[in-house]
Amino acid sequence: MHHSFKQFSAVILGLTLFLGSCSKGEHSPEPEVPVNTKTALKISAGVGFGNILTDQRGFALYFFAPDANGTSTCTGSCESVWPVFYAEDATLPANINIADITTITRADGKKQTAFKGWPLYYYASDTKSGEVKGDGVGGSWFVAKSDYSIMLAKTQLVGANGKNYTADTKEGNGISDYLTDAAGRTLYAFTPDTYNVNTYTRADLSNNATWPIFESEIINLPSLINKDLVMQITAVGKKQLTFKGHPLYYFGPDAKRGETKGVSVPAPGVWPILNLSSPVNP
């Protein structure tokens, strides 16, 4: 009898501990702490550059103009100077739209974080927080910012007819510099426009879908673009940016970033791209 009581007590004690542990697990779960296995993305102060995108240490990140179509083109020896930035499970600043952060897989199989479709890189010569030594290098590298109004791209121009063009509106192979919006969509000028005057868009906007007005505020510009070259005008009630006096437009059939179909429509030279070498609109 005494032996049975001891066994019974042991069972009761075990059941009590078991139920207690279940109760603790149900009502007081351990909080799940997200593990940042790589590095965080944040906005920091870059010396002389205002607010820039950095990793969690404050090291500057960069965009590469030839990456306009969203594909990383910096490989091999280029990558040794401009290392890839990859933020797995990145912690984002409150004022950044999570939809602007994506991950791409490079041709070499590595993953890379992109912002508004621009793959992000470090610059090997930046040795401490706040340094921005890589901005403007080769006319192709720009410190990453969350609020550029326009960007500079460098790719082969390909018209809607499938032919290759150069910046002088002629058929041919060659990398051309041209303006895009912050997300890499090509911007065009309309040759008949006069200085800061949109002569294309109808008052009823019936043709705006074909060549949409580029509506934007002037916020931040790449360092190679003098702020005096960019203005905002009002055209048919819309705020349109101009560059060197040329009102800026999209081409509706450019369905994705990096496409330049408009350079051949309706004929080369009618809707040219613009770059730092473009003349001021008379």
Rank of each mutant, 00 (worst) to 15 (best):
T194I: 08
N207H: 06
E217L: 14
T201N: 01
Y195E: 08
P222G: 12
I218H: 09
A203P: 01
L221Q: 07
T201G: 02
R202F: 11
T199V: 10
Y200C: 02
T210I: 13
N207V: 05
P222H: 11
N196K: 08
S216I: 08
I218L: 15
N220G: 12
P222I: 10
N198R: 02
N207E: 06
P212N: 03
E217N: 14
I219P: 01
T194A: 08
N208Q: 13
F214D: 00
I219Q: 14
P222W: 04
Y200I: 02
T210W: 05
Y195N: 14
P222E: 08
T194E: 09
P212M: 03
S216W: 01
W211I: 02
V197E: 05
N220E: 15
P212H: 04
N208S: 13
E217K: 15
A203M: 12
N196M: 03
A209Q: 14
N198S: 09
D204L: 10
N198D: 15
Y195V: 07
N208A: 13
A203E: 14
L221T: 07
L221S: 05
F214A: 01
A203T: 14
W211N: 01
R202E: 10
R202D: 06
R202A: 13
W211Y: 05
Y200W: 09
W211F: 04
I218Y: 07
L221K: 07
E215W: 03
E215Q: 14
I213L: 13
T194C: 03
E215R: 12
F214E: 00
N207L: 06
S206G: 09
P222V: 11
P212K: 03
A209H: 07
S216Q: 11
R202Q: 13
I218T: 11
S206Q: 07
Y200P: 00
L221A: 10
E217H: 13
E215I: 12
N196D: 15
